[in-house]
Design a protein around this nucleic acid. Structure first.
Length: 506
RNA sequence: GGGCCUGUAGCUCAAUUGGUAGAUCAGCGGACUUUUAAUCCGAAGGUCGUUGGUUCGAUUCCCACCAGGCCCA
């Protein structure tokens, strides 16, 4: 930012139409700000002795009217000012909570009291004074000195109704965070979820790694990538749509237990559960299979839910939801056949399978085989009816090109997806580690792409080369972090758990 | 992509069978030594999302567009 310009021309109309110098709500704030810049200026640092929350922890049990004789220094944003003649009460808000400032003209002095009266809601101040409890029992700092740390040139939203407009809260998340405790709670819950995942994986001997975001080829999932260009190399590049194939290269390399938490980018629509950039957690563990991963995930989900919400039994969208393990396993085809009219089977002719799909509301595309039809029937007829956690297993080989064929059934893979409350929360395989089969699967994807499946994966030659060096049996996992945070914070829309959701420009 | 809905003061919301809009909070002036959304008095504050059209007259009706929400695909 060009600070010279901003100081010299603060009256330029901003893009939301407010002219700070001319608007009645901002003109006096701006004038005070400019006076401070011309005069004493603003401090570069401030020494705080206590957070608001720490004061409550230490002094909340005192009787009304107590004067502790102890001096503390607090700092934060002024959230509410109630001036009553020679006495003023104000609410100071910091990261830990709020504490009341008790401002007495006799304590602060005439000049100090007048200066305090010049403050506006939203200003950042630091203040020092005695910890007291008012006659009404409110823990307060009776300030003897204070300092303006930063001026708020813009007014805060309505102090009671706050900011409720979804669009404004999303675009100006900084304001949402200032005035809505719920917004702060979600941000903290999210941070805690990610932190707990790290703790849990590290406790199991995993190491955290970082794999590339910018790729020559977007592989490892079925999704459209964002395309970009590297100028110096004059090279078209893509943002990653998964971390899977790079993490498995690390298993080949012998790191054995790896995980990564990071942004994934998919060039697709935005709705209640989808954002073009979202946070995925992937992990891979040598010598494990998908059952090992399932046991790990259900333990982690219960632990994280308990630490974030206080219980493994949640309320989500008005309903109770129990994340206590173990979670039942159910083969996909069995669930489909419970839900449709007729019986789907890999033994049906493709013609009969298509007819069965059509009679159950699914119109197969030309390139679909039995597997895609089964998965589509599951999506349309089963998924939404799932509430309590269930591992859906036995995904068709056709729709799982990176998963190992099931040890007992060649039509399906050792794969599960964890469904809760109608959405997918995790996806895991016994990883396909046999290079010749992997090459054939990629070739089948290429054929599907040629037949019109624009989501089919491309072959990643270097990945096959890596497998040719030998990958041990491996259990892999992907978890949508945003959705888990939604579940734990009882949010129905992903935008509520992403600090800065993707939006069109204003 | 389709359907429905929304956009009015900084914020939260009203109103209009078509005659240029009101309230709470915030802000401004005043009173007040225990407030908790303080209270009381007073005076202000608006490109009614944008652009066209119909009309004597449009915030209101119509077209298009912009941004957003919900549902469906």
């Amino acid at each position: 930012m060009s600070d010279e310009d901003s100081i010299d021309s603060p009256d330029a109309a901003l893009d939301d139409g407010i002219d700070l110098a001319a608007h009645p709500l901002t003109a006096s704030r701006l004038a005070k700000h400019q006076a401070t810049l011309r005069g004493p200026g603003y401090p570069y640092r401030f020494e705080r002795s206590h957070l608001a929350g720490e004061l409550h922890d230490s002094y909340d049990r005192l009787e009304p009217g107590t004067e502790t004789g102890e001096s503390v220094t607090v700092a934060g944003r002024l959230r509410n000012i109630r001036a009553m003649g020679k006495l003023t009460f104000a609410v100071l808000s910091d990261v830990s909570g709020t504490v009341q400032l008790f401002v007495d003209k006799r304590v602060l002095g005439d000049a100090g009291f007048a200066a305090f009266a010049d403050l506006d809601m939203g200003d950042w101040i630091g203040a020092t004074g005695e910890v007291v409890v008012t006659r009404k029992g409110e823990l307060s700092v009776r300030i003897g000195t204070f300092e303006l740390l930063a001026k708020a040139l813009r007014p805060l939203p309505d102090k009671f109704h706050g900011l409720t407009d979804v669009e404004a809260r999303s675009r100006q998340r900084y304001v949402d965070l200032m005035v809505n405790q719920e917004a702060r709670d979600v941000a903290l819950a999210r941070a805690k979820v990610v932190s707990l995942f790290r703790r849990e994986f590290e406790a199991r001997g995993y190491i955290e790694v970082e794999t590339p975001v910018l790729l020559n080829q977007a592989t490892g999932a079925m999704a459209r990538p964002f395309a970009t260009h590297h100028n110096a190399l004059d090279l078209d590049m893509y943002l990653r749509i998964a971390t899977e194939l790079y993490l498995k290269r690390l298993i080949v390399g012998g790191l054995e237990k790896v995980f990564e938490v990071g942004k994934i980018f998919r060039n697709e629509g935005i709705d209640a559960t989808h954002m073009p950039e979202f946070t995925m957690l992937e992990s891979y563990e040598a010598l494990a299979d998908y059952d090992d991963i399932a046991r790990m995930v259900e333990e982690m989900f219960a632990t994280i839910a308990t630490e974030v919400t206080g219980s493994a039994v949640l309320r989500y969208q008005g309903r109770s939801l129990d994340l206590t393990p173990p979670y039942p396993r159910a083969p996909m085809l069995g669930l489909v056949n419970d839900a449709i009219d007729g019986t789907m089977s890999f033994d049906l002719s493709l013609q009969d399978a298509v007819a069965l799909a059509q009679s159950n509301g699914v119109e197969p595309e030309a390139h679909w085989g039995h597997g895609k039809i089964i998965e589509e029937l599951f999506d349309r007829r089963v998924q939404a009816s799932i509430w309590e956690p269930v591992y859906v297993t036995h995904h068709p080989v056709e729709t799982s090109p990176l998963a190992r064929r099931h040890r007992d059934d060649p039509n399906v893979t050792e794969r599960w997806e964890l469904f809760i409350a109608g959405s997918e929360y995790g996806n895991a395989f016994s990883e396909l580690n046999e290079p010749l089969d992997q090459r054939r699967r990629f070739e089948q994807q290429t054929a599907a792409k040629a037949a019109g499946d624009d989501e089919a994966q491309e072959i990643d030659e270097d990945y096959v080369r890596a497998l040719e060096y030998g990958m041990p049996p491996t259990g892999g996992l992907g978890i949508g972090v945003d959705r888990l945070v939604m579940l734990l914070t009882d949010k129905a829309h992903i935008r509520e758990v992403v600090l800065f959701p993707t939006m069109r420009p204003e």
